[in-house]
Design a protein around this nucleic acid. Structure first.
Lengths: 260, 260
DNA sequence: GATAATAATTAACGTTTTGTTAAATAAAAA
DNA sequence: TTTTTATTTAACAAAACGTTAATTATTATC
């Protein structure tokens, strides 16, 4: 018998199936408070949340209305959860070509009172300029940025508290173990700009010490000097610019060979 | 209006919903070829696959029959995909309390000819003894272990080729960046046993050099000496045993502070 | 019973990297 | 002209590394 015959016999309704398949996105941005000219700015990692409207598009009372939530929505049957996340993020913020990563599935029975609804969690990295732009375009829904400490005081929808906690853990790990930090930086950056990004998630002394980090950055195989290019963004004296080099494989440095 | 009213108005059938929600498991084991007494054994990382039966439980022609596939099945509406993976693994191998981790979602439209079927990918670590046990109990379905190289020559079901590729990448990364290696080892182990496990996924010279690795293992904060305990499993001269210490937080060593 | 063989472990040592403190630099601000 | 400041280099002792060789404790062999 052929595969086709097997297919014809297959009864798709044999098992109960989910009532919904959704994607949510933890949108991260780094806001930098520029204190003065010729100074590196203090950076803070923030998460964008939206306040759920009282009514949905059909003018009905919205589920989990008035609570803060991750942006997201239902996955269509012609796309993956990852593609849906990209689409929804574009609808919400107007930005595409941003860093987006799937990091987990949230499917505990009862997590959504509407039924058996599965959520795919993603995180995205968007520049604060891009977010500011969106805010100006559309102020229908309330949108705000929260630091890691402030976010847990909010009244959060569904199981978003847990998703957010996991999202912060994942982005912290990725910032330190991969080169995603590049998405928070301009294409060319100074050692202190990269340092500031990393210090939003770590207090490692090898990173926080200027002398150590400025010396170390020159020997990292995934970062290169931009020959002869300097900037005065962060200091009076012209400062060397660096850029990430394209790597086709991830860098994996075993915990068994690190220094402690 | 209350949340309850919102719930009553909510129409669960507004969006098309998936036709199936499944969990698949990449079951890894390490087989060690013991060449002789008083010698460390050569270890190889292998993946367990099952050959899909010609007929399903209802005596119908099975979908993707005769192809090799990851064990798995449908998630029930009272459990998470992760719980389903644990249940299915127990049904399949008879083992519980093994290391199990969700690592991805596979939901590309068309990936399964039966309809819109979403697969949750997990990997599990099972000792080869536990697998050998199962083989003896039930030889109805064909089960076999394949090395990373051999597996890609097989006729694989659905999109399992991609899932397997990703599973190998994830376990490689986890073996080097976390302490999951402990699940491949007895509670107490020699430096060469740990070394052999790591060498199944890396050829890092700091790990493959005996002198370096034997010196280094003593300074790792997540491994401790078992005072006064030695074994002759791997050498004529009694060899020091080590164990992993329980850590409540993951070790994260930034790529920005590593040596290159 | 002496000798060879072997995996684990330590020693030895020159090289590299680190942590730290201090000095040098170059431009702006006072 | 002097002060200020972020960056960068220098200097140097301490730590860690890569490597080769020696030591150890046992089993296997003769």
């Amino acid at each position: 018998m052929s595969n086709q015959e097997a297919l014809d016999q297959y009864d798709v309704k044999k098992y109960r199936t989910p009532d919904g398949y959704t994607s949510d996105i933890a949108v991260f941005t780094i806001v930098s408070e520029k204190n003065a000219d010729y100074k590196p700015s203090k950076m803070t990692l923030k998460l964008m949340l939206i306040k759920r409207a009282k009514q949905n598009n059909e003018k009905q009372v919205n589920i989990e209305a008035d609570k803060w939530a991750l942006p997201g929505g239902f996955v269509q049957d012609d796309e993956t959860a990852f593609e849906a996340a990209g689409r929804e993020l574009f609808e919400e913020t107007g930005v595409s070509k941003i860093h987006l990563k799937h990091f987990g599935i949230y499917d505990k029975p009862g997590r959504d009172p509407r039924g058996w609804i599965i959520s795919n969690a993603h995180y995205a990295i968007v520049s604060s300029q891009q977010l500011a732009q969106r805010k100006a375009d559309d102020d229908a829904a309330e949108v705000a940025l929260f630091s890691m400490e402030k976010v847990y005081n909010l009244n959060l929808a569904f199981d978003h508290r847990q998703i957010i906690k996991d999202a912060f853990a994942v982005i912290k790990q990725d910032l330190l173990l991969t080169t995603v930090a590049k998405n928070f930086l301009p294409e060319q950056f100074t050692y202190s700009e990269l340092q500031s990004v990393l210090l939003t998630v770590t207090d490692d002394s090898a990173i926080s010490s200027d002398a150590s980090f400025a010396r170390k950055i020159k020997s990292l195989p995934f970062i290169e000097v931009v020959e002869g290019k300097k900037t005065q963004r962060t200091s009076k004296i012209p400062t060397q610019l660096y850029r990430f080099v394209h790597m086709d494989a991830d860098i994996i440095k075993p915990i068994y060979t690190a220094r402690y």
